[in-house]
Each structure stands twice: as structure tokens, then as C-alpha cells.
Amino acid sequence: MRLNAEFQAHLASGATTLCRCWLLLRADGVSFGFTDHDCDLGFDGIIFKADSGLSAAALQQATGLSVDNTEAVGALSDAGVREADIEAGRFDDATVRCWLVNWADTGQRALQFNGYLGELTRSGGSFRAELRGLTDRLNQPLGRVYQKPCAAVLGDTACGVDLTTAGYGVEIAAEQVEDSRMFRFAAIAGFETGWFRRGRLDVTHGAATGLSGVIKNDFAADGRRVIELWAPLRADVSAGDGLQLIAGCDKRLETCRLKFDNIANFQGFPDIPGDDWTVSYPASASVTSGGSRR
């Protein structure tokens, strides 16, 4: 935590006017400011609200690559963090910053914490959020996996497929929706059955705008086209809401070549030896031509 000279002098004075301010930035760009001071504060174009009921546990920090962590607790309110937004997953992996601030002069402040939301729970009209430091990302495994299927995610930089290209997706209005998981349509013109299996469904309009689901199955039943998700969307989807369906990929070499014409960027190892080869053992033989022995 770096302190400017004025802030350092204020802390050394023994009579301080300190509070904490938190900035919560969701992946969709929506931001929230909170403070444990009894009045609203503002800096960097952000208003930090005092009526949120937010408080934080002691911040644990260490040098080196140790993971910083803390916990924030606050009240749910319509003007701030809403229970429906938490349930919908809109706060998942949101960026969090915390400052130690001189509330008498907000120009005197120091960034104490920079990280993201971990586990977020709610109960009794309040929420409890685990805050994880940036070094927590280093706990995630990195590197390529030696396997036959492609390791890239369809449309990412390793894959290189432009999913905005015509033929890979379609915008369509929801028709029949069951449990925000089963979507039935009269027809999806121009796309054969199974085209969207393992793909993605994005909600572009309605109460669930911004939410996405992974498509488990794409099939025809009772004269209708059915899109089934692996898990229900965490907000209600109604008939008429805007949806976008994105093509799926089963990670096979044949699919990469025939469906996406992207064989040059295939990120798997299709010629990896099978189990029979890996468990075989060397044997001596006088005949080495590969023919049968008699």
C-alpha cells in the first residue's frame, strides 16, 4: 500500500478521519460504490454510498505470491446489490477494489485491495462475499493438454473462428420456454438439427439480458425444434425475449475441417497413440516385415 506524503502525515498525526471505500465492477460494466462512512463520498467519478450497510472483515495481505483475501458483508437493497442480480449470477467474478480514505479530504487515499469476487452467498436480506486477491489467479492450471480433442474454446484467439460470420449463429425470439432451460421453436430456418449442440445461448433482450447458457442438445420433437441447456438460466425468460444461438463444436478434427474450415488452427493432437499402443511391449522376432508369422 503506497501512501503519499500528505496521507502519511495524516496517519502519523494520531487524529485521523479514516474510512474505507469499495468499488464493485461487474463484467457487464455496471459499477457500484460503497463506503463505511456515514456520508456519501466521491472520487474518480464514482459515488460511494453510505447507506449500503456494507462492512468488511480484516484484510489479510502478505508479500510474495501469497493470496490476499478478505470478506465483505452488506444489506441487499434495490438501489445497490439486488438479490435477483446475485441469483442471476451478474456479480460472478466481478472486480473489487478497496481504498483507505481520509473522508475529510478524499484526495488522501491508498488502494488496499485489488481483486475479484469469489463465493457469493445471500440470506435474510443480506449478502456475504468472499474477496480474492489477484495472486489467486496463479492457482489456476495453465498450459496445453496432450489430448486428441481440440483444447481451444470455439471463437477464442487460439481457435480463430469468427462467430459473427453468417451461418454460425442466429438471432431469434423465444417462443415456448420451460424452466429457463428448454426452448421450443416452430423452426430455425437454415440450420440442421444438432448444429447448436455444445454451443451457446445468449439472452439479448428481457429480464435475463446478458446471461448465457451452454447448449446440451439440439433436436426435433413433435414438429418443433428444441434447444436444451445443461443448466437453467438464473433468471426468467419469457416468450418474445431476444435470444442468440451460437453454433457448437464437439472438438473433433473432422468437425473443425468440415463445419468450420479451420483445420489450420486445430488445437488437439489427433495422431496421439491409443491405449493398445501405450501398453504394448517390445518383442524379438526374426521376421520384421510386418506380415503374419507361421
Rank of each mutant, 00 (worst) to 15 (best):
E175Q: 15
G64D: 12
K148G: 11
P232D: 02
L245P: 08
D202V: 07
F113R: 02
T17F: 15
W230P: 00
S123E: 08
Y281S: 14
I227R: 03
A264D: 15
W103L: 00
T164Q: 13
A58L: 05
G107H: 07
L154M: 07
P232R: 03
L41R: 07
D275R: 09
Q244S: 09
A72P: 00
D250V: 08
S280K: 05
N265A: 15
D156M: 08
W195S: 09
R200N: 04
Q60S: 12
E254Q: 15
F219D: 03
A27E: 10
G291S: 10
W103P: 04
S13P: 03
T193P: 06
A129T: 03
C39I: 08
R293H: 12
R198W: 03
A9N: 10
D222Q: 13
L59C: 05
S286E: 14
V161R: 04
I188E: 01
W195F: 15
A231K: 10
Q112L: 15
A110R: 06
G14E: 03
S280P: 01
R20F: 10
D51G: 09
D236K: 12
L253F: 13
Q147F: 03
Q112R: 11
A57G: 14
V161L: 09
A5K: 02
V81S: 00
A247L: 02
G291M: 07
G155Y: 01
F269D: 12
L111E: 15
R82K: 12
Y281G: 07
T157R: 12
F219T: 04
S126R: 15
L65T: 12
T165Q: 15
G155C: 05
E87A: 13
G45H: 08
G223L: 10
F127N: 01
V170F: 05
F260R: 04
R257W: 03
F196K: 01
A58F: 00
L59G: 00
D250H: 08
N114E: 12
P270S: 06
R184C: 06
A235H: 04
M1H: 05
R200P: 03
A5Y: 02
T165V: 15
D136Y: 10
R144Q: 15
E130Y: 00
S55E: 12
G64C: 10
S180K: 02
